[in-house]
Design a protein around this nucleic acid. Sequence first.
DNA 1: GGAGAATAGTTATCATAGCAACTGTTGCTA
DNA 2: TAGCAACAGTTGCTATGATAACTATTCTCC
Lengths: 179, 179
Amino acid sequence: MANPKLSNRSRSSAVQGEIRQTKPFRSTAQEATIALLRTASIVNRALARVVEPYGLSLAQYNALRIIRGAGAGGIPTLSIRERMIEEGTTITRLLDKLEDAMLIRRERSVPDRRQVLCFVTDGGRKLLDSLDPLVNAADEDAVASLSELELERFISLLDAVRQTNAKRGAPRNAGLART
Amino acid sequence: MANPKLSNRSRSSAVQGEIRQTKPFRSTAQEATIALLRTASIVNRALARVVEPYGLSLAQYNALRIIRGAGAGGIPTLSIRERMIEEGTTITRLLDKLEDAMLIRRERSVPDRRQVLCFVTDGGRKLLDSLDPLVNAADEDAVASLSELELERFISLLDAVRQTNAKRGAPRNAGLART
DNA sequence: GGAGAATAGTTATCATAGCAACTGTTGCTA
DNA sequence: TAGCAACAGTTGCTATGATAACTATTCTCC
């Protein structure tokens, strides 16, 4: 622990209020990590509720968007996993579900027969088209309390946190995305 | 969607780089939510790796800390859930595990026999005592790239996001905490 | 060109999250 | 004070997540 950053200051804290804690947090760092995890959990569930009525989990929706983003060339299975928000190890079964639902199609790659390429089907594309505005709206809502400038700062701070954590034990410093 | 906040600016984005996306994010809000979820996922796993060697999941560790924080008076089951980071509905079974491991003790409340009060055992307290420094260090590490001032801002931004989301569909606007 | 390492996925096993239905207890109130 | 709503937990079912072991294919480089 190179930099203790112990503070125990008396700043009013929303998190402290929420948890009805008597003692203040022992460090700003601890408060920050808890606030981060807590906030993400809430946003995650809010977004999940948007797509669930359409029979998709948030992870499935995310994967589907990534596959659509790959375009006509398709995308190999593990590339999808690298780009997902939660790098679930269950990517195969997740894709199985999407394929069962006829939202994607899979076929072995021609030059490299180890790979399995994934393509979005017309049905999958149609589903995404109807979901896009809803999810975009939910994204906006989730951070609606922040101004554009605050959003930029927020993203920078998150990037910084991710940067340091990606280097060490973290699962994989790959990306995420919807595209 | 009251406030589109569409930007598509050309600012360099760490998240974009990570995901090797060709097209920029469609909105700053979308980039922020993705960065938030992604970052939390990474930090979550980093913290989980700290406690897992001791036979605890992060949620179990969190619950155990909450129970310890309640002190000699004990704490009813559902109060624990309200204060947890992830408000899992599986609180009963989570506590079952902790009880099986002799880390907590449970007994029906005297005045209100509906409640089940939870207490940390000596063993549980000892385990936490040995884990505390490790988890504190991990918390510090997770946000080590941020200065104290940045941490304060970061927490404020997270608080703001949580505030708006707690009001609507979110699970429950209760708290979280270890203590 | 063949042995072995590396890569791409899949499968098995287990623990956990979510939802909903259910039991036992207390409080309200007519 | 009987009856019903609300509260506190529990349990069953299903789906998802994490690890790790396993198969199939390709690469490497003597």
